[in-house]
Design a protein around this nucleic acid. Structure first.
Length: 194
DNA sequence: TCGATGGCTTGTA
DNA sequence: CTACAAGCCATCG
């Protein structure tokens, strides 16, 4: 695949203990195009970005973003500016992380789920006047900005936790760190509101 | 273009 | 409680 120099990506890594948090930022625009869930191995953290953006350079300049992401992971409430994310949809540009308006709309709704709360795939779809529950799940699965776009706060209608890119275990732990009460892999009702 | 595939949901047994 | 089928709809090859 030919590489468009306009889309050269800078990868920055923040290390916290044995976890590596990585972020990919387009050099020409300064926008984040990819965030990865923590890896226990630096190579994997880089690979997670560069699988999508093979033309990259490892630099420290966006380390603070990766650090903020690590703070979200630790359960802190972090104010993250949406404007830093590349959310443009342009079908003629294959390198943009968000491929459709549907995907963008779902990501934006997800972004608005407050800290410490959960919402279901179903209610998210219904907010978009759609019955595309499964398609919402697909958007979550492909979320380019995990943690910042808190797909870990999206759960199944029966209030069980559902799947997660980093595994159910990580999803449950993330929710607990935010104060969501769980019994096994099920959200306790009183902590749920739409 | 069209069928297969999902981080889903609901109903039935 | 579990299991399975059918329905749903955006995405991918």
């Amino acid at each position: 695949m030919p590489v468009n120099p306009k889309n050269k990506v800078i990868v920055s890594i923040y290390r916290d203990g044995d976890l590596y948090f990585s972020v990919g930022v387009v050099e020409s625009t300064g926008k984040v195009v990819k965030i990865s869930l923590p890896k226990t191995d630096k190579t994997k953290a880089i690979a997670d970005i560069t699988n999508y953006y093979p033309d990259f350079e490892l630099r420290d300049e966006y380390k603070d973003i990766a650090k903020d992401i690590s703070r979200i992971y630790k359960g802190k409430k972090v104010d993250f500016d949406l404007g830093m994310l590349e959310l443009d949809v342009d079908k003629s540009n294959r390198d943009l992380p968000v491929k459709s308006t549907f995907q963008k709309d779902v990501l934006l709704e997800t972004y608005n789920i407050p800290y410490g709360e959960v919402e279901t795939y179903k209610s998210l779809a219904e907010k978009l006047i759609s019955r595309a529950y499964r398609a919402v799940g697909t958007v979550m699965a492909k979320n380019p900005f995990p943690l910042v776009v808190p797909c870990h706060r999206v759960v199944k209608s029966d209030l069980t936790i559902g799947q997660y890119g980093g595994g159910r275990k990580m999803k449950g732990e993330l929710l607990k760190k935010e104060g969501v009460h769980l019994k096994g892999d099920k959200i306790i009702k009183k902590n749920y509101r739409t």
